[in-house]
Simulated scan of single mutants.
Amino acid sequence: MPLQPGEEPTPPPARPSVVSIKIEQAAGVDAIVFSLSGDGYIGWTARFVQMPLLQGTDDPVSISGSCILQIDMIGVDSNIVSLRREMPKRLLPESDESSVVEVLSYPSANGLAQAFVGTRSGTPAVTVDALADRPAITVGIAS
């Protein structure tokens, strides 16, 4: 509907933001922790992919690992100023014994933020937790 003279446009609804991403290691399980801020609902999917593709461009994602886990978070904005669409944030584990080889995190586009996790094992066990008392999505990976 067109705006009437003197009428202000309605701002888009605020979305939760991904404010940081880190790898935590404890008791043989590596966790990729997506810390969040803001209010609202977030949808997510996590799946293994043979050919990792960046949403909206279908550009292949070059990532190391025996198995690739794609994590999509829907309804979020990236609040990480260092992220540019063409250059993901790259995280490496502190230990060579980690289940994770590397994590590539891309900024959000149209409310979708993507991350790709390369694992050492071809058959890792994956858990995803979204806890009410901690504003984060945690993806656990064990070989």
Rank of each mutant, 00 (worst) to 15 (best):
A46D: 14
D133C: 07
S17E: 11
D96N: 10
Q114I: 03
E97L: 09
S121Y: 02
P2S: 04
P93E: 01
Q4E: 14
V117A: 03
D77F: 06
R90F: 11
I68E: 04
I23Q: 02
G75I: 05
I141V: 02
P16F: 06
D77Y: 08
L104A: 08
A14V: 15
E97H: 11
N110E: 11
V139L: 03
V101A: 09
V76M: 06
D39Y: 11
F48L: 15
Q114G: 08
M87I: 06
I141F: 03
N110R: 11
M1W: 10
I137S: 06
A31W: 09
S35T: 12
R90W: 11
P135C: 04
P93V: 01
K89H: 08
S98V: 09
N79W: 02
S108C: 00
E8F: 15
A109T: 10
D72Q: 11
S95V: 00
E7N: 08
C67R: 13
G40S: 09
Q25G: 14
K89N: 08
P5F: 04
K22P: 14
E94G: 09
S98A: 08
E86C: 06
V126G: 02
D58P: 13
P124Y: 08
I21H: 11
S17T: 11
V76S: 06
S20E: 06
P135H: 00
S121R: 04
D39L: 13
V126I: 05
S20K: 10
A31N: 09
P9Y: 06
G122L: 15
V19A: 02
D58T: 14
S37E: 10
V128S: 08
P93Y: 00
S143T: 04
T123E: 10
V126L: 02
I23G: 02
